[in-house]
Nucleic acid binder design. Structure first.
Lengths: 301, 301
DNA sequence: GGGGAGGATAGACGGTATCTATGGAGACTG
DNA sequence: CAGTCTCCATAGATACCGTCTATCCTCCCC
């Protein structure tokens, strides 16, 4: 049984005339006759009572036709919905973002995304790198904004922009008097985030610390970390996009001597069919943050 | 777009594996791959994200799949309903019956019809001959029990049994003393039904009256006519099946000298697809009334 | 790096939907 | 009452498409 034949049946029932129905279906009258006859044989019942002048649906046809209509309507719905889904730059895109980036980047890119991709519903999801990669693999996310290289055969990624690190110091810290701070100088009283945050590893690497921190406190969020620095517990590195927040908290920021930074990338499954949407989001983000590393390292975004 | 392909999509979505889905569909894996790919091209969207290890429905597929399920379910419903309608001896059969026959025949054949054709729902419809023929032509009836010849190219008919006429007399009528009555002797004070009843024309023809009856009363039903005869207003001819009712009304019945009768026929549209059902009903009726003309002319049915 | 699993591709084959041309039944008309 | 018209059915040819087997490519694992 074929959807095409079901449409033929509806046409014959509607027109009560094989010739007119055939024309409406865009086929020849013999074709219509043959196909309807064939369907009648498949179903084992007569659908129409034909005379030389009239074509009338049988009782059986009346009983069936609601199902026929429903089947054809569902088929049409499939086509209609598919058409509405055809634009890769429309629909939902679940985008993971690491916690040290999300609160500072999202306010910047929300409006540009809405403007450039009005039909794309970007659903942000905040979690640490490993969790995001896992969710990418399980199809719970479609893309992810990360600050690390992505080295996996099933995933692909593209760099979007470089985000410089800044030294974050209590106002009365001895280094606060400097115009810039060498990365290694922060090692002594460095504060870092909890395990799992890529920023933690990057901060330690930049300062030349191996990772053994003893009983040093580990903040669970960058916001907490900033408060700890502001309270004089120590120093840290912060990503450039958090500069505004840090300054608001009363923290002194200084550029780093080696201009250490991290590269923000967008990642997706290698076989993700709507790669175009991911790329488009990446383009908007990159475009919004263009020149950030050069001109905005002091917090003027 | 094809229902078959929709079933393929459901299979792939269910199994998450082209090979297993192909096996479930009874086709080869390459065929399934090609067909799904083709459907994706028709719809203009990717339905599955394939890697060497996993096959996962896309977001678009999730949005479509309810419609796919519905379409397939309706198609299955069509097949199931068609199967249940396949027996021509099952389902509704709208059967017209003329008023001078219905009240006397139906009680006789109801039980035999139920027994012989338990799945057939015979829906009786009582009206005069012309109305029944009209309703046959408009497909409002599927068959009709008539007492006249059916001479129309679009209709067919078959005789079922002969129903003898009987002279119906008031008990004190001069002819009531006879063992039998010649048809012509009734002409003088004959009472007849209203226009449109075939029994009216047959009665007049049997008595040799041309039809000009002057102010003679025209009963609107056979029941009324019998009451009029019983009250002594005149005589009439009644069909044999009404004998019991007539005698209950206190009427004297006598056989006719020439054994005049009428032939009860079943009629249907020449192209009616369930002719088998009509024939079956005809057989039951004919079988129930077999030998009626010969042995039951005195009312012993 | 060799083997295995799984999906994609290629080429051949067969079924079937479609066409045009024609047949045949029934109804209207001059 | 024959001619004609309408309309559905049939016949035969053709082209498309769904399906198969055989093979390739990719990825993963040992």
């Amino acid at each position: 049984m074929n959807l095409r034949d079901l449409r033929y049946v509806l046409a014959v029932a509607e027109h009560g005339h094989f010739g007119h129905a055939a024309e409406a279906c865009g086929i020849s009258q013999p074709t219509l006759s043959v196909q309807v006859r064939k369907l009648e044989e498949i179903l084992g019942i007569a659908l129409f009572e034909r005379t030389s002048k009239t074509v009338v649906p049988t009782d059986a046809c009346e009983r069936l036709i609601s199902h026929v209509r429903a089947a054809v309507a569902e088929a049409d719905a499939i086509l209609a919905v598919a058409r509405s889904l055809r634009n890769p730059l429309a629909g939902r895109l679940r985008l993971g973002i690491i916690p040290t980036l999300a609160p500072y980047l999202l306010p910047l890119v929300f409006a540009p995304l809405r403007e450039a991709l009005p039909l794309l519903e970007v659903e942000p999801w905040e979690d640490q790198t490993l969790a995001l990669l896992e969710r990418l693999r399980t199809h719970d996310l479609d893309g992810a904004l990360l600050a690390t290289e992505v080295d996996a055969p099933d995933l692909a990624s593209r760099p979007l922009f470089a985000e410089p690190f800044l030294a974050a110091l209590p106002p009365d810290h001895r280094l606060a008097a400097r115009a810039e701070v060498a990365e290694g100088e922060l090692a002594e009283d460095i504060l870092v985030l909890a395990d799992g945050h890529c920023l933690r590893d990057q901060t330690l690497a930049a300062c030349g610390r191996s990772g053994a921190l003893g009983s040093a406190m580990r903040a669970t969020s960058l916001s907490t970390l900033l408060n700890m620095v502001a309270a004089g517990y120590g120093t840290t590195l912060i990503p450039g996009l958090a500069a505004g927040t840090a300054q608001d908290a009363g923290i002194v920021l200084r550029p780093l001597a080696a201009r250490t930074d991290r590269t923000i990338r967008i990642a997706w499954r290698a076989h993700f069919p709507r790669r175009a949407a991911v790329e488009a989001v990446g383009n908007v983000v990159a475009s919004r943050l263009k020149g950030f590393a050069a001109g905005a390292s002091m917090g003027t975004i």
